[in-house]
Protein backbone atom coordinates (compact mmCIF):
# COMPACT_ATOMS: atom_id res chain seq x y z
CA UNK A 1 0.00 0.00 0.00
CA UNK A 2 2.59 2.55 -0.95
CA UNK A 3 1.00 5.72 -2.22
CA UNK A 4 2.09 6.45 -5.74
CA UNK A 5 3.61 9.85 -6.11
CA UNK A 6 2.29 10.61 -9.61
CA UNK A 7 -1.18 11.60 -8.60
CA UNK A 8 -2.00 12.74 -5.13
CA UNK A 9 -5.46 11.46 -5.79
CA UNK A 10 -4.83 7.88 -4.93
CA UNK A 11 -3.47 6.10 -2.04
CA UNK A 12 -3.62 3.12 -4.31
CA UNK A 13 -1.02 0.42 -3.99
CA UNK A 14 0.04 -1.87 -6.76
CA UNK A 15 -1.75 -5.11 -7.15
CA UNK A 16 0.67 -7.83 -8.05
CA UNK A 17 -1.59 -9.96 -10.17
CA UNK A 18 -0.87 -8.19 -13.40
CA UNK A 19 2.87 -8.00 -13.55
CA UNK A 20 3.32 -6.98 -17.12
CA UNK A 21 0.08 -5.14 -17.77
CA UNK A 22 0.86 -3.04 -14.75
CA UNK A 23 3.73 -1.31 -16.41
CA UNK A 24 1.28 -0.04 -18.96
CA UNK A 25 -0.97 1.48 -16.39
CA UNK A 26 1.67 2.82 -14.07
CA UNK A 27 1.21 6.23 -15.56
CA UNK A 28 -2.39 6.21 -14.43
CA UNK A 29 -1.63 4.77 -11.02
CA UNK A 30 -3.59 1.58 -10.78
CA UNK A 31 -6.02 1.66 -7.88
CA UNK A 32 -4.87 -0.69 -5.21
CA UNK A 33 -6.79 -3.43 -3.52
CA UNK A 34 -7.35 -1.52 -0.30
CA UNK A 35 -10.47 -2.59 1.52
CA UNK A 36 -12.58 0.22 2.81
CA UNK A 37 -12.51 0.50 6.59
CA UNK A 38 -16.12 0.43 7.62
CA UNK A 39 -16.30 1.37 11.25
CA UNK A 40 -14.63 2.20 14.49
CA UNK A 41 -14.56 -1.35 15.77
CA UNK A 42 -11.70 -1.65 18.22
CA UNK A 43 -9.35 -4.53 17.57
CA UNK A 44 -9.96 -5.74 21.12
CA UNK A 45 -13.52 -6.81 20.41
CA UNK A 46 -14.43 -9.77 18.32
CA UNK A 47 -17.11 -8.00 16.33
CA UNK A 48 -17.17 -8.23 12.61
CA UNK A 49 -16.81 -4.70 11.21
CA UNK A 50 -19.11 -5.77 8.37
CA UNK A 51 -21.90 -5.56 10.93
CA UNK A 52 -22.06 -1.80 10.78
CA UNK A 53 -21.48 -1.64 7.06
CA UNK A 54 -24.22 0.27 5.28
CA UNK A 55 -26.06 -1.63 2.59
CA UNK A 56 -25.29 0.95 -0.07
CA UNK A 57 -27.30 -0.76 -2.80
CA UNK A 58 -30.35 -0.30 -0.70
CA UNK A 59 -29.86 3.21 0.55
CA UNK A 60 -28.14 5.14 -2.23
CA UNK A 61 -30.66 7.55 -3.68
CA UNK A 62 -32.83 7.54 -0.57
CA UNK A 63 -34.36 10.89 0.18
CA UNK A 64 -34.29 11.98 3.81
CA UNK A 65 -37.13 14.06 5.05
CA UNK A 66 -36.29 17.69 5.61
CA UNK A 67 -38.57 18.30 8.58
CA UNK A 68 -36.13 17.27 11.35
CA UNK A 69 -35.71 19.99 13.94
CA UNK A 70 -32.14 20.44 15.14
CA UNK A 71 -30.59 22.36 18.01
CA UNK A 72 -27.09 23.78 18.07
CA UNK A 73 -24.68 24.34 20.95
CA UNK A 74 -26.31 27.66 21.74
CA UNK A 75 -29.68 25.92 22.03
CA UNK A 76 -31.05 27.61 18.90
CA UNK A 77 -33.21 25.40 16.72
CA UNK A 78 -33.38 25.14 12.95
CA UNK A 79 -34.63 22.56 10.42
CA UNK A 80 -32.52 20.18 8.43
CA UNK A 81 -34.35 21.32 5.31
CA UNK A 82 -32.89 24.78 5.80
CA UNK A 83 -29.41 23.38 5.23
CA UNK A 84 -30.35 21.77 1.93
CA UNK A 85 -30.49 23.48 -1.44
CA UNK A 86 -26.82 22.67 -1.93
CA UNK A 87 -24.86 19.51 -1.15
CA UNK A 88 -24.76 18.59 2.51
CA UNK A 89 -22.06 16.50 4.13
CA UNK A 90 -23.60 14.66 7.05
CA UNK A 91 -21.46 13.21 9.85
CA UNK A 92 -23.13 11.16 12.55
CA UNK A 93 -21.25 11.11 15.85
CA UNK A 94 -21.93 11.02 19.57
CA UNK A 95 -20.58 13.75 21.75
CA UNK A 96 -19.37 11.81 24.76
CA UNK A 97 -17.04 9.98 22.45
CA UNK A 98 -13.38 10.48 23.18
CA UNK A 99 -12.02 8.28 20.43
CA UNK A 100 -13.02 8.17 16.81
CA UNK A 101 -15.68 10.88 16.69
CA UNK A 102 -13.53 13.91 17.39
CA UNK A 103 -10.94 12.42 15.09
CA UNK A 104 -13.22 11.94 12.11
CA UNK A 105 -14.57 15.45 12.54
CA UNK A 106 -11.04 16.83 12.76
CA UNK A 107 -9.96 14.78 9.74
CA UNK A 108 -12.94 16.03 7.83
CA UNK A 109 -12.03 19.60 8.64
CA UNK A 110 -8.48 18.97 7.44
CA UNK A 111 -9.52 17.32 4.22
CA UNK A 112 -12.14 19.97 3.51
CA UNK A 113 -9.46 22.61 3.98
CA UNK A 114 -7.84 21.11 0.89
CA UNK A 115 -10.98 21.45 -1.21
CA UNK A 116 -10.41 24.50 -3.34
CA UNK A 117 -13.08 24.11 -5.99
CA UNK A 118 -15.96 24.48 -3.59
CA UNK A 119 -16.31 26.96 -0.80
CA UNK A 120 -17.70 25.70 2.46
CA UNK A 121 -20.92 27.48 3.34
CA UNK A 122 -21.45 28.91 -0.12
CA UNK A 123 -21.27 25.76 -2.26
CA UNK A 124 -21.85 23.06 0.31
CA UNK A 125 -22.57 22.68 4.01
CA UNK A 126 -21.45 20.28 6.70
CA UNK A 127 -23.62 18.95 9.51
CA UNK A 128 -22.38 16.94 12.47
CA UNK A 129 -25.29 15.30 14.25
CA UNK A 130 -25.45 13.19 17.38
CA UNK A 131 -27.19 9.85 17.47
CA UNK A 132 -26.94 9.56 21.25
CA UNK A 133 -30.22 10.52 22.94
CA UNK A 134 -28.30 11.44 26.09
CA UNK A 135 -26.41 14.24 24.36
CA UNK A 136 -27.16 17.81 25.41
CA UNK A 137 -25.95 21.24 24.29
CA UNK A 138 -23.39 20.98 27.12
CA UNK A 139 -21.91 17.75 25.86
CA UNK A 140 -21.86 19.27 22.38
CA UNK A 141 -19.85 22.25 23.65
CA UNK A 142 -17.45 19.85 25.36
CA UNK A 143 -17.15 17.90 22.14
CA UNK A 144 -16.37 21.03 20.13
CA UNK A 145 -13.54 21.81 22.52
CA UNK A 146 -12.36 18.26 22.29
CA UNK A 147 -12.43 18.15 18.52
CA UNK A 148 -10.54 21.40 18.33
CA UNK A 149 -13.33 23.61 17.07
CA UNK A 150 -13.24 25.87 20.11
CA UNK A 151 -16.49 27.59 20.95
CA UNK A 152 -17.45 28.61 17.44
CA UNK A 153 -18.16 26.09 14.69
CA UNK A 154 -16.50 26.84 11.31
CA UNK A 155 -18.38 28.79 8.65
CA UNK A 156 -20.93 26.57 6.90
CA UNK A 157 -20.51 23.78 9.44
CA UNK A 158 -23.24 23.07 11.93
CA UNK A 159 -22.82 20.80 14.92
CA UNK A 160 -26.19 19.93 16.34
CA UNK A 161 -28.53 17.57 18.16
CA UNK A 162 -31.89 16.29 17.09
CA UNK A 163 -34.49 18.19 19.05
CA UNK A 164 -36.65 15.13 19.51
CA UNK A 165 -34.63 12.02 20.50
CA UNK A 166 -37.34 9.90 18.83
CA UNK A 167 -36.14 11.30 15.50
CA UNK A 168 -32.79 9.54 15.93
CA UNK A 169 -34.21 6.17 14.99
CA UNK A 170 -36.16 7.59 12.09
CA UNK A 171 -33.15 9.39 10.61
CA UNK A 172 -30.57 6.64 11.06
CA UNK A 173 -32.89 3.96 9.78
CA UNK A 174 -33.72 5.96 6.70
CA UNK A 175 -30.00 6.24 6.01
CA UNK A 176 -29.22 2.59 6.77
CA UNK A 177 -26.89 3.72 9.53
CA UNK A 178 -26.41 1.09 12.25
CA UNK A 179 -24.85 1.60 15.66
CA UNK A 180 -24.78 -0.25 19.00
CA UNK A 181 -23.74 0.41 22.51
CA UNK A 182 -21.12 -2.05 23.60
CA UNK A 183 -21.03 -2.20 27.40
CA UNK A 184 -17.79 -4.12 27.37
CA UNK A 185 -15.97 -1.40 25.49
CA UNK A 186 -18.17 1.29 27.06
CA UNK A 187 -18.62 2.90 23.69
CA UNK A 188 -20.89 3.07 20.66
CA UNK A 189 -19.85 0.93 17.73
CA UNK A 190 -20.77 2.73 14.52
CA UNK A 191 -19.57 3.22 10.96
CA UNK A 192 -17.10 6.00 10.31
CA UNK A 193 -18.94 7.39 7.39
CA UNK A 194 -19.45 10.72 5.73
CA UNK A 195 -22.83 10.87 4.01
CA UNK A 196 -23.17 13.07 0.95
CA UNK A 197 -26.64 14.45 0.33
CA UNK A 198 -27.67 16.08 -2.92
CA UNK A 199 -29.25 19.55 -2.86
CA UNK A 200 -32.64 17.79 -2.79
CA UNK A 201 -31.63 15.69 0.23
CA UNK A 202 -30.97 12.39 -1.50
CA UNK A 203 -28.01 10.24 -0.50
CA UNK A 204 -25.48 10.36 -3.30
CA UNK A 205 -22.49 8.71 -1.65
CA UNK A 206 -21.27 7.06 1.53
CA UNK A 207 -17.58 7.77 2.09
CA UNK A 208 -15.85 5.68 4.72
CA UNK A 209 -13.72 7.92 6.84
CA UNK A 210 -10.36 6.30 7.32
CA UNK A 211 -8.70 7.05 4.01
CA UNK A 212 -10.67 9.92 2.53
CA UNK A 213 -8.60 12.82 1.29
CA UNK A 214 -9.37 16.24 -0.13
CA UNK A 215 -9.71 15.05 -3.70
CA UNK A 216 -12.28 12.44 -2.76
CA UNK A 217 -14.20 15.10 -0.89
CA UNK A 218 -14.03 17.49 -3.80
CA UNK A 219 -15.24 14.84 -6.25
CA UNK A 220 -18.04 13.68 -4.03
CA UNK A 221 -19.31 17.23 -3.58
CA UNK A 222 -19.06 17.79 -7.33
CA UNK A 223 -21.03 14.64 -8.00
CA UNK A 224 -23.61 15.48 -5.34
CA UNK A 225 -24.60 18.36 -7.57
CA UNK A 226 -25.72 15.63 -9.98
CA UNK A 227 -28.09 16.89 -12.59
CA UNK A 228 -27.10 20.47 -11.99
CA UNK A 229 -23.67 19.92 -13.47
CA UNK A 230 -23.73 20.77 -17.12
CA UNK A 231 -21.11 21.41 -19.76
CA UNK A 232 -21.65 25.08 -18.98
CA UNK A 233 -19.33 24.69 -16.02
CA UNK A 234 -16.91 22.66 -18.04
CA UNK A 235 -14.20 22.07 -15.46
CA UNK A 236 -16.55 20.52 -12.94
CA UNK A 237 -18.16 18.53 -15.66
CA UNK A 238 -14.88 17.11 -16.90
CA UNK A 239 -13.70 16.45 -13.38
CA UNK A 240 -16.86 14.53 -12.61
CA UNK A 241 -16.57 12.62 -15.85
CA UNK A 242 -12.95 11.60 -15.42
CA UNK A 243 -13.46 9.87 -12.09
CA UNK A 244 -15.82 7.17 -10.97
CA UNK A 245 -16.49 5.79 -7.53
CA UNK A 246 -14.74 2.57 -6.64
CA UNK A 247 -16.93 0.51 -4.34
CA UNK A 248 -14.14 -1.89 -3.43
CA UNK A 249 -11.74 0.74 -2.17
CA UNK A 250 -14.35 3.27 -1.09
CA UNK A 251 -12.57 5.97 -3.06
CA UNK A 252 -12.72 7.65 -6.42
CA UNK A 253 -10.56 6.39 -9.21
CA UNK A 254 -9.81 7.44 -12.76
CA UNK A 255 -12.25 6.34 -15.42
CA UNK A 256 -9.64 4.53 -17.51
CA UNK A 257 -11.76 3.49 -20.49
CA UNK A 258 -12.44 7.13 -21.19
CA UNK A 259 -8.77 7.87 -21.61
CA UNK A 260 -8.16 4.71 -23.56
CA UNK A 261 -10.99 5.68 -25.89
CA UNK A 262 -9.59 9.19 -26.23
CA UNK A 263 -6.23 7.71 -27.07
CA UNK A 264 -7.73 5.52 -29.74
CA UNK A 265 -9.60 8.49 -31.16
CA UNK A 266 -6.25 10.21 -31.56
CA UNK A 267 -4.85 7.04 -33.09
CA UNK A 268 -7.47 7.11 -35.83
CA UNK A 269 -6.81 10.74 -36.58
CA UNK A 270 -3.06 10.26 -36.59
CA UNK A 271 -3.48 7.40 -39.06
CA UNK A 272 -5.13 9.65 -41.58
CA UNK A 273 -2.45 12.28 -41.01
CA UNK A 274 0.19 9.59 -41.52
CA UNK A 275 -1.44 8.43 -44.74
CA UNK A 276 -1.60 11.97 -46.06
CA UNK A 277 2.05 12.59 -45.21
CA UNK A 278 3.19 9.41 -46.97
CA UNK A 279 1.23 10.35 -50.07
CA UNK A 280 2.60 13.88 -50.09
CA UNK A 281 6.13 12.53 -49.91
CA UNK A 282 5.43 10.09 -52.73
CA UNK A 283 3.96 12.83 -54.93
CA UNK A 284 6.95 15.07 -54.35
CA UNK A 285 9.29 12.23 -55.33
CA UNK A 286 7.32 11.69 -58.52
CA UNK A 287 7.63 15.35 -59.43
CA UNK A 288 11.38 15.38 -58.84
Amino acid sequence: MTPLPLFGVFSGGRSSRLGFGMALFMMFAWPGSVQANYGNIPASTHIDPELVRIDEDKFLGVRISSDYILRDAGGESFTLGGLLGRPLLLVLSYYSCDGACPTINRNLRDSLAGVNRWEQGRDYRVLTLSFDPHDTPESLRMFMQHAGFGTQSPEGWSLALLNDPADIGRLTESLGYKFFWSPRDAMFLHPNVYILLSPEGRVTRYLYGASINSTDMELSITKAYGNEISPANAVNFLLAACYSYNYRDGKYSINYPLFIALGSLLLGISMITGGVLVMKKRKRREII
Binding site: G61, R63, S198, E200, R202, T204, R205, K223, A224, G226, N227, I229, P231, F237, A240, A241, C242, Y243, S244, N255, L258, A261, L262, L265, I269
Partner: peptide
Protein backbone atom coordinates in the same frame (compact mmCIF):
# COMPACT_ATOMS: atom_id res chain seq x y z
CA UNK B 1 -12.62 16.89 -32.64
CA UNK B 2 -13.85 18.53 -29.46
CA UNK B 3 -16.96 16.41 -29.62
CA UNK B 4 -15.29 13.62 -27.74
CA UNK B 5 -17.47 11.14 -25.87
CA UNK B 6 -19.41 13.18 -23.38
CA UNK B 7 -19.03 10.89 -20.43
CA UNK B 8 -21.76 12.50 -18.49
CA UNK B 9 -22.70 9.15 -17.11
CA UNK B 10 -20.14 9.85 -14.46
CA UNK B 11 -22.45 12.43 -13.03
CA UNK B 12 -24.46 10.95 -10.24
CA UNK B 13 -28.10 10.70 -11.10
CA UNK B 14 -30.58 11.75 -8.50
CA UNK B 15 -34.22 12.67 -8.89
CA UNK B 16 -35.07 16.27 -9.49
CA UNK B 17 -37.66 17.60 -7.07
Amino acid sequence: LPLIPRPAQAVQVVPVP
